[in-house]
């Protein structure tokens, strides 16, 4: 649903989304990188489980929430993508396990 214009110079980074490698441009936010990779839905809601995807891209709507490097509910549009970053679909509410990773 989005494609990248070829007339901008930018370095390339690789991250994973739900385990699959995705290529992005340095400087992309996680949400922009996902849009460029054709990902429309990046989470399900805690209320009904409905799928949602980036909506405002400016940090106000909280629709682009994803799990980044094990941390739930990060705003994908405000986090710059980094080489090797692990991004995952945010399934519903933040997961709390009784044995927290220290």
């Amino acid at each position: 649903m989005f494609r990248r214009l070829s007339d901008r110079a930018s370095g390339e980074v690789t991250f994973t989304f739900d385990g699959l490698p995705v290529r992005a441009s340095a400087g992309d936010s996680v949400a922009a990188a996902l849009l460029a990779a054709g990902v429309r839905a990046c989470r399900t809601t805690p209320v009904s489980g409905a799928p949602r995807g980036p909506y405002c891209m400016m940090g106000v709507c909280f629709e682009c929430l994803v799990r980044i490097d094990g941390m739930d509910n990060r705003q994908g549009c405000l986090v710059p993508v980094q080489e090797g970053m692990r991004v995952e679909t945010q399934h519903g509410a933040r997961a709390l396990t009784t044995e927290p990773a220290q």
Partner: peptide, 17 residues
């Protein structure tokens, strides 16, 4: 999405729908 979101994607990452 909002139109502004598409504009931000264009400005920050050179993405077009």
């Amino acid at each position: 999405m909002t139109a502004g979101a598409a504009q931000i994607a264009l400005k920050t990452s050179g993405l077009v729908p």
